[in-house]
Simulated assay, not measured.
Amino acid sequence: MRLLFLGDLMGRAGRSAAADALPTLREKLKLDFVIVNGENAASGFGLTSKIAGTTIQAGADVITGGNHTFDQKELLNVIDADDRILRPINYPEGTPGRGFAIYDAPRGKKVMVINAMGRVFMNAMECPFRAIDAVLKKYRMGVAVHAIVVDFHGEATSEKMAMGHFLDGRVSLVVGTHSHVPTADCQILDGGTAYQTDAGMCGDYNSVIGMQKEEPISRFLTKMNKERYSPAEGEATICGTFIETDDRTGLAKRIEPLRMGPRLMEHVPVV
């Protein structure tokens, strides 16, 4: 199968660019399944049901989240009913929504997506390693599902890399989100799992991780909050991770970054 993961949609610029590009990307890359991180899609903070619907209509199969998942409280009205919207699996018991689900893909294939959040320099959460491990003990790749993608939303590169090696051989892809900066370490680990520390963001890179520059710079200089953060609204660059999997084992045969837009060196996989 061919799968595409798009990094955090950052505000209007990011979500609009992704929605515009997804139909073409699905056709050009002959994609079977698309996952998008949407936790910053609504003005940089959270996700609304309207934005989720637009993103799915454009070509996303699943939208994952992170520490801003519930910033828009209206999402609480739909997240239990719509399994195409995930929140981190290691939120405390009783939190609305779900942290993983299994989805139908073309040719009778099934794809599991797991969303988890790190704990280093992040809010206190349950252990993401144990939470994912418990799911994988019930659903084996190559038996119950044909591919498994893990969106690990975290701050620390060490924690993300540890998760990649912890899951090596048991999932198709471990990809990091949250930092909004694409890393140059796309690789296939020893056990056959594709890995990238961070997919980057879909947003305006003429910014401070997607926010207009003035307020972040001011806070660093003065240690004072003068205004709210506002997403940068210039032309967006789309960043993500493309993989091809072995239909029999679910392990990765290929991984490449995707970068499309005005600010970063472009790279679009060829299929």
Rank of each mutant, 00 (worst) to 15 (best):
L75H: 00
Q196A: 15
T55R: 07
D151E: 13
G99A: 09
D133K: 12
G66K: 04
A105F: 01
G99Q: 14
A162V: 09
N90L: 03
I188G: 14
L47Y: 04
G164H: 04
C186G: 13
F152D: 03
F129W: 13
D247N: 13
M161F: 08
T183C: 04
K160A: 04
T237S: 09
M141Q: 08
A116N: 00
D82M: 10
M1R: 04
F121I: 15
T95Y: 14
D104L: 09
A252G: 01
Y229F: 15
D185M: 02
I148K: 01
D133F: 12
G169S: 08
D247S: 14
T222F: 11
A18I: 08
R263M: 14
K160W: 02
F100M: 13
L221I: 07
I63P: 00
Q212L: 08
G192K: 06
G108N: 08
M161R: 14
T249N: 11
F33P: 05
A60H: 08
T183F: 00
I63H: 00
I102A: 07
I217P: 01
E93K: 15
L167I: 07
D8F: 11
T177E: 03
R140M: 14
P182E: 05
V120F: 09
I35V: 15
V174G: 08
S16K: 12
G59Q: 06
M161A: 10
A105H: 01
K28C: 02
E266H: 13
R254W: 14
L75D: 03
T54M: 15
R254V: 12
K160I: 06
S218A: 11
C127F: 08
P257I: 09
A41D: 10
A156Y: 05
V171S: 03
E266V: 11
P269Q: 02
D80E: 14
E39S: 00
Q72F: 06
S158L: 02
S43V: 00
A21R: 05
A156T: 11
V181L: 01
G66V: 02
E126Q: 08
A162E: 09
A116G: 02
G176L: 06
E233G: 08
V135S: 03
R26S: 10
H267K: 12
S49Y: 03
G142E: 03
G261E: 08
E227Q: 06
P257H: 04
R98I: 15
N67G: 10
E244Y: 01
A134E: 15
V271C: 14
E159S: 15
K28R: 14
T64E: 09
D80L: 13
E256C: 09
F121V: 11
G97I: 15
F242V: 11
K138G: 06
N123I: 01
E256S: 11
E227S: 12
C202S: 09
I63M: 02
V174Y: 01
A199K: 10
L6Y: 04
A13E: 04
M211H: 03
